[in-house]
Amino acid sequence: MTLLTFTLIMFLGAFAAGFIGSLSGLGGGIIIIPLLSVFLGVDMHYAIGTALVAVIATSSGSASAYVKEGITNMRLGMFLEIATTAGAVIGAIISTNAPTSILAIVFGLTLTFSSINSLRKKEDHLVLPEDSSALARNLKLNSSYPTPSGEKVKYGMTNIVGGFSMMGIAGMMSGLLGIGSGAFKVIAMDTIMKVPFKVSTTTSNFMMGVTAIASSVIYIQKGYIEPSICMPVIIGVLIGAMVGAKVLVKANPKKLKVFFAFLILALAINMMYNGIMGNI
């Protein structure tokens, strides 16, 4: 294949990944990996490196808007980044030593879990600041976020130790597979710490960039980052995500979500099958 053909296919594929990632709420990075490794025959390690670059591009791009609105809880993000960066370094070291077939199987399992999780009905929590745990108060994690009408909603949170540990796992998966691990972060913040939905999604997005740089140095040193693959992919993913966000406003997101969740589940099974058969 010539570089020109490869770049064009890569761009179209990344556009599709960004589009599906945005509609399904899973993010573009997690869809780039099966696309590159299963359909385009790119080695899994290059796919992981490329996904990490795409994750940084999309998360920094969208975080810029949320941070300005004041929804992101920057102290919570910074505190939890201790867990995610430490996890990411461990994950990246495991990734550079693990055989490709194992990575494919772990990735397939993560993708299965994420797609099922995207269909689960999410409960929005609001812990009042006075019901907050002592540790949350000592770490100054309680905060408030503005509603569209301009009011401020004050909130607290609980089970900081549990959430922190889950974030370590989220960071490890991110370093291992080059993904943003949004699904794990949501479990840590929504389900365990009971942070309001609006705050948890934006803070999770805010944390992705810093978590990713912890593993990026290791990826660069091991040669995971290949400029010729990354260039069309970052641009394709960003444009795809923007178009996806526009469509999301008009279309029925529920039906689309179910459709894409099944599509992603099929991809996940394909990855695991190829991993077990040693094709990847």
């Binding site: 010539t2 020109l4 790119v42 899994m44 390690h45 290059y46 040669g223 010729s228």
Partner: peptide
């Protein structure tokens, strides 16, 4: 990145590429 991409397209677009095997570096 786009500027770099345009330069690559002008200079190397006909080159054959193959990323099916990972070449590990230690740099």
């Amino acid at each position: 990145a786009v500027i770099g991409g345009i330069i690559v397209m002008f200079t190397k677009s006909g080159n054959t590429v193959d990323f099916s095997t990972f070449i590990e570096k230690d740099d």
